[in-house]
Design a binder for these strands. Structure first.
Lengths: 225, 225
DNA sequence: TTCTCATCAATTGTCGACAATCGGAGTCGT
DNA sequence: ACGACTCCGATTGTCGACAATTGATGAGAA
């Protein structure tokens, strides 16, 4: 899929991926102090590679480092998530606009079939919100790839993608949004097929706005308890 | 200004900034191999901090690292620049839209005065394309700050900002675009003052599209020789 | 000559130990 | 009792040396 699990490569890369996974899944709590020596021993490596991994994760905004005071897992508060969704709206909207002019017919067909499989998966059973959520990320990234914009692919693939997943792990997605989301996905594919970049961008932006509204409402409901 | 020169801090940060500067100004050629031992000695530090700096620069897309094969300065070819401007259009457009609802009257006034000083600077003399260009970056970043979106500020401030400057160092900006650019800046401030986010976004996007068109034409002209 | 393969220098990846810095416990003085 | 100061433990920052990998060079066979 997206994050290729590098069982091989430099130790720094391995540590980076393992840490990213632990942070995204919540195994490492938000704001938790990351002790270099402890983590290095846990991963069976020296502190050198681990420090490089922390620098990398800092670039991905998964940890926040303070000189001479160590690194901490980032805290995904409400405002940070809000900021994240604004950025995603802008970037994925742009990706969608460009993709409308650059995706091949085949790719658009493939996208359509991907939605078919999602629909099947939903109808057969709840199917687990998790796999549906991962499928959603697949859909979005296929469009980003369709833009042929390497920078967009990097930004949305490597960096934002992890924060996005972290966000979803926290706010376990309510299943009643899968239906309208699928509908919106279909509309987006339709716009892509018609090569209407402006419309595709607008639909994608509304789609992401809707997702954020849903999430923020969920959070507000949770916090009132 | 934006990039604070950290004469103090960790060696890795110092190396990162010095390398970034050397890359942006072209002192280090595009695609040039970056030898760790050599750079470490030049900066008077060990290879540890330097490796961390390289990891950081990799996150900023200023260098490209290949495992077991070293790091190289990124090559800013036409497509990369094109991709960069598409991303900027999306992000700064969004920043502008949000800024229209969140900037204070004072901040907007200040922005207007900034443009006055730019106009003065242009009228008094060509004033050097350089300082005008830096002033332009100032204008853009003030708006990004106005969006109150930390993620946007980070992305456009730390990462894209350097690539942007690198881009300008290569294609020495033609001075005849300063006039229409200033005009467009005025229109954007006007839209912000009227709290018209949609208009402000559209104007900013067109402004950046115009800048890209100007740059790409310059490049095309250069390559024909 | 040209292709293949083995050897080797150069460079990257990694580790352990030392120095510098920070936070906190404890103490002293008011 | 409260505040400030000092000292110490813990943690981060840094360095030098060693191991592993690369690709380059050159020898040898077809």
């Amino acid at each position: 899929m997206l994050q290729s699990p590098p069982q091989q490569g430099t130790l720094a890369d391995i540590a980076s991926h393992r840490l990213a996974h632990s942070i995204v899944t919540g195994e490492l709590a938000q704001g938790q102090k990351l002790n270099e020596a402890e983590l290095a021993e846990r991963f069976g490596m020296g502190r050198g590679p681990l420090r490089e991994a922390l620098r990398h994760l800092e670039g991905m905004r998964l940890v926040k480092r303070i000189p001479n005071a160590g690194a901490r897992v980032v805290v995904l508060d409400f405002k940070t998530m809000s900021d994240l969704y604004a950025v995603r709206e802008a970037l994925e909207g742009m990706a969608c606009r460009i993709a409308a002019t650059r995706m091949t017919e085949d790719e658009i067909d493939q996208l359509s079939r991907l939605l078919d499989s999602h629909e099947m998966q939903i109808k057969q059973q709840g199917g687990g919100v998790y796999s549906q959520s991962e499928g959603d990320l697949d859909f979005h990234f296929q469009i980003v790839r369709g833009s042929r914009n390497e920078m967009l692919m990097d930004m949305l693939g490597s960096e934002q993608y992890q924060l996005q997943r972290m966000c979803r792990y926290r706010t376990s997605r309510n299943a009643q949004r899968t239906q309208p989301a699928l509908q919106q996905h279909r509309q987006i594919v339709e716009a892509l097929a018609q090569r209407d970049g402006e419309l595709a961008e607008m639909l994608m932006r509304r789609h992401i706005q809707g997702a954020w509204r849903s999430i923020s409402e969920t959070i507000a409901k949770k916090e009132q308890i």
